[in-house]
Amino acid sequence: MTPENLSKQLAFIKEIDKLKYIQRRTKLFNSDRCENSAEHSWHLALMAIVLTEHANEKVDVLKVIKMVLIHDVVEIDAGDTFIYDTQKSHDNTDEERLAAQRIFGLLPEETAQELIAIWEEFEAGETAEAKFARAMDRLEPLLQNSSNNGGTWHEPGVTYDKVFSKKSVIKDGAADLWTYGESLINEGVQKGFLKKNTTD
């Protein structure tokens, strides 16, 4: 370990503290307080550990944990985009790639390249690990909204069709968790928290 490497590692550690200040739209379970992106990432990591048996395929759990812990680090520069935002795409953007290069680039080269590759793999959503990690990412706010009488489902323009479309990604990584998630969405419709139509 060289002093230069340690200096870079500590610079990265200090920089990612900023993720604690990035507010998300979803609120904590049974709460009025919005979750921040660092809390979200921590929660996904524990979910990945606890729910691994539900993955569609055998996954490298450590890699999944790395994915969910770093997937939103780019929000330090790019901010959090609401999944149902109609003005800005929630999908990977050039802005986020630039953020990944800058923030992970604070680290020693080998570590930086590893984390950038893991981040890119998550965004592509093609490997078993990425599919399961993305399932966790979509499941957590679904559970939160269900606990908060609909939560962000009440925001303008959010309908059953949009929620179903965005959340159905869960089935690609964990089909039985999607069965449960779909039941929560339908329950939200029955309780009047979610409108089952295609109009905004």
Results as ranks from 00 to 15, higher is better:
84 Y>V: 04
120 E>D: 14
156 P>M: 01
53 E>W: 01
97 R>S: 14
154 H>T: 07
67 M>P: 04
107 L>D: 13
53 E>H: 01
54 H>C: 10
104 F>R: 14
120 E>R: 12
81 T>P: 06
122 F>Y: 15
46 L>W: 12
49 I>N: 10
126 E>L: 06
137 D>G: 05
79 G>S: 03
54 H>Q: 11
97 R>E: 15
86 T>W: 04
57 E>N: 13
99 A>S: 13
117 A>V: 12
92 N>W: 09
130 A>V: 09
75 E>Y: 02
59 V>T: 04
76 I>S: 03
85 D>I: 04
95 E>S: 07
55 A>C: 01
140 E>M: 14
69 L>R: 13
114 E>N: 09
64 V>F: 11
105 G>Q: 10
70 I>L: 14
63 K>N: 05
154 H>S: 05
83 I>P: 01
75 E>Q: 08
68 V>M: 11
90 H>C: 01
113 Q>K: 13
82 F>E: 08
97 R>G: 15
121 E>L: 09
121 E>I: 09
74 V>S: 08
129 E>H: 02
105 G>I: 05
140 E>P: 01
83 I>V: 10
119 W>F: 15
121 E>V: 06
74 V>W: 01
70 I>Q: 11
141 P>S: 05
91 D>C: 15
129 E>L: 05
141 P>E: 05
122 F>K: 06
75 E>M: 06
46 L>V: 11
101 Q>C: 04
73 V>E: 03
102 R>D: 10
94 D>A: 13
56 N>R: 01
157 G>V: 01
135 A>L: 02
52 T>W: 00
78 A>D: 01
77 D>S: 09
131 K>G: 07
98 L>N: 15
101 Q>H: 14
99 A>H: 06
89 S>Y: 05
127 T>I: 04
87 Q>W: 04
61 V>E: 04
102 R>N: 12
72 D>T: 08
111 T>C: 11
134 R>P: 01
133 A>N: 06
62 L>D: 10
120 E>G: 04
108 P>A: 02
125 G>P: 00
91 D>N: 14
91 D>A: 12
46 L>H: 15
66 K>V: 10
111 T>K: 15
147 S>G: 06
69 L>W: 10
110 E>R: 13
135 A>P: 05
119 W>M: 12
130 A>K: 10
105 G>Y: 00
112 A>D: 11
152 T>I: 09
149 N>C: 08
72 D>P: 03
49 I>C: 11
56 N>W: 00
89 S>P: 11
104 F>L: 13
117 A>E: 15
122 F>R: 03
153 W>C: 05
94 D>K: 09
51 L>K: 00
140 E>C: 14
103 I>R: 08
150 G>F: 08
155 E>N: 15
117 A>Y: 10
45 A>W: 06
96 E>W: 00
59 V>Q: 03
50 V>N: 07
120 E>P: 05
116 I>L: 15
135 A>K: 05
61 V>C: 09
47 M>D: 03
60 D>R: 04
57 E>C: 06
97 R>I: 12
72 D>C: 07
125 G>C: 00
79 G>F: 00
66 K>N: 15
121 E>T: 08
